[in-house]
Amino acid sequence: MNFYLQSSLLLLLQLGSYLDPDDPDKIKDPVAAYKLLRRVRSEWMNITSKRQRALSCRYSTGGGNPRLMYAPVKEEVEWDEPRIIRYHDIISDSETEILKNISRPQLSRSETTRGVSKTRTAQGVFLEEDTIVVAPISQRIADITGLSMDSAEELYVQNYGIGGRYEPHYDEWDNENGRIATFLIYMSDVEIGGATVFPEVGIALKPKKGSAVFWYNLHKNGNVDLYTEHAGCPVLRGNKWVANKWICEFGQEFRRPCSLSYGE
């Protein structure tokens, strides 16, 4: 049985002992129940004091990028291994609306490596670099990540309606010029659902309009990081707009040097 399923069943059984049999809406010992929830959550997410200290917020200049020296970005470390970073307020409301308006008439069913599939129920469109606001966004991503956009894929705008989802997958398709990293921009809030989840490490990232999350799909040795498997949870209420920038390997040789170590 899956570890997370076992933990869920154990939690339900233990919490059941705290319920008042005469009134299931009441908890006999709310303090004990709360402590249990915190303990199980920590076990699920493997949170240790050392790991907790690694999850921090700061202003970042992208390693000293001149364009960010006087306007640093708000950086929040969501997870340490794999390193998943959220950047706040990196796209404006006006840029978001422009992207949506340009994309709407061009949207078509998003595909997987096998074509159209029920595992991915969304609509999307690739926007060329010379499209209004796209070039400045690409430059912003380059400044923040320190990576080259020369071989990156075009910005891919997607819309998930009610029930829209993307089942667990890896962004790297084992191509010659593989997707070394993902920069996922949230262009809308979602009332219920729509989180980006990483099941192997047990974290969920809620969409927050104007923010973006970034992670490396590949280790420095070129192998796929198996902990980067992720999914888009179904949208239960609201509408989810995102924009993906998949950054590829070519051109990163001196920006993210390769490693001969199996563990890197």
Rank of each mutant, 00 (worst) to 15 (best):
S8W: 09
L107C: 05
R104H: 08
G193V: 03
Y18A: 07
S94N: 10
G16I: 04
I247T: 07
K240L: 11
Q14Y: 02
A33Q: 06
P82A: 05
R83G: 02
Y4G: 06
V134M: 09
I98T: 07
G146Q: 12
E129C: 09
R39G: 01
L55N: 00
R120K: 14
T182Q: 07
S42C: 05
R104P: 02
N221K: 06
V224Y: 06
M69S: 05
F126R: 12
T145G: 15
V77T: 07
L5D: 06
G210N: 13
H88V: 01
S148A: 09
L37T: 06
I90L: 13
A54H: 02
T121D: 15
K240C: 13
M187H: 03
G232A: 13
I85Y: 02
L184E: 03
Y4V: 10
D93G: 06
F198H: 04
L55C: 01
A243G: 08
W241D: 00
A122H: 07
Y227D: 06
F183G: 04
N177S: 12
S8G: 11
W44T: 00
L10H: 08
E111D: 04
I185Q: 00
I91G: 00
L236W: 07
A152I: 04
L99A: 12
E75D: 02
E43K: 02
G62I: 10
G178E: 08
S110W: 03
S188K: 00
V31P: 05
S148P: 00
P234C: 09
